[in-house]
Design a protein around this nucleic acid. Structure first.
Lengths: 192, 192
DNA sequence: CGAGCGCTTGATTGAGTTCAAAAATCGTGG
DNA sequence: CCACGATTTTTGAACTCAATCAAGCGCTCG
């Protein structure tokens, strides 16, 4: 059976004793369909590797509606990277759509294997993780929020950029037409 | 002035001579507003680090409309990771929104610095890059394609998952209501 | 066997698009 | 530095795609 370790470490190169030490920090778990592994507002410290079965991650918006961020079948990893990165309470729920067998692990596994922060290579990986976190947030906005909220989010997240580009560009980034953005901004301003 | 190197290598730890060798493969370039650095269908081999100015990446859909995937101000990196990962022709254009000063580099920089494929740590990084590439594709679909095309894309990309989850879940993943998906599928099937 | 869930279908509503045209802003050459 | 042309932004009307609300059917699993 495949393990997360087979995926982190490439071929050879990592000493057996280190691998064994890492393996001891990984916890194998059987989860029943419907079981919740991570709830909103919990601190996301652990990630889940799926050996067998199917997990999903999703958010619940302010109207109580579910929006699935990702499915995770065999050999996939699920986690709230954004929450882990920024050390903020998680926005995602993670649960099991089928009875599953998973491996539970946290950042320390990567550190022990030298993937993260081992010898100066950390900053590049940090950057990749931050990128993923940004993309995750954007997808969540796109599937769950109406145009006006996406605009407000953009306003807050990129105050510097908003000054430097045309509205046409911002609209294009948000996935709406310039006309729609103009109208949204009109109403929005009027209401303040 | 900050360089991409300051970001890849963390603090200390990488020998000076290796850093210098890496630095020699990085090319500093002045680009004028409007200049195009990467075109659709080119093979994306290089990435761009912005020292000063503003770049963007975007696609042009089949109706000729631009959709901005990302802005890249100072200290950001732009590249078509999906294209680089899968070695496919790029879907993204990259151009300059302001006169900018950038650093041009390719994968070899990471390899030389031991971030990628140096000593077995590669597989973990590969996984992160693949994740980014998946997220990139999904965002592009969300901002540029109507619901039916997003569904068809999903059908092709995750044929295994489609069998195992309810349509309600798929709709939730696509960012539409179950009713809308049902209707879309109805028409779609009828037309075949 | 019944209750609930999932899927479909229909009617209505609403957010955002498209098309068009006017007003405002920007950039450039004279 | 001004003026002109081009682009951007705004506004309006008609339209379209998808959301909402509601009802009905079929299935399963408890």
């Amino acid at each position: 059976m495949k393990s997360i370790l087979d995926n982190i470490i490439g071929h050879g190169k990592v000493p057996d004793d280190i691998i064994e030490k890492a393996r001891s920090t990984i916890q194998v778990k059987q989860v029943a369909k419907g079981e919740i592994l991570l709830r909103e507002n919990e601190k996301a410290t652990r990630s889940f590797y799926v050996r067998k079965g199917l997990l999903r991650s999703y958010i619940i918006d302010n109207k109580g509606k579910e929006h699935i961020f990702s499915f995770a079948p065999e050999d996939w990893i699920v986690s709230d990277i954004a929450s882990q990165m920024q050390n903020t309470p998680s926005r995602l729920f993670i649960d099991a759509l089928e009875d599953s067998e998973i491996e539970v692990f946290d950042r320390s596994v990567f550190e022990e294997l030298g993937v993260v922060s081992a010898n100066g290579s950390s900053a590049g990986v940090q950057r990749l993780l931050r990128r993923i976190s940004v993309l995750q947030d954007r997808i969540i906005m796109l599937i769950s929020a109406p145009a006006i909220e996406r605009y407000q989010e953009f306003e807050n997240t990129y105050p510097d950029i908003i000054q430097r580009v045309t509205q046409k560009m911002i609209a294009s980034y948000l996935g709406i037409t310039p006309e729609a953005l103009s109208k949204i901004r009109g109403e929005y301003a009027r209401k303040k």
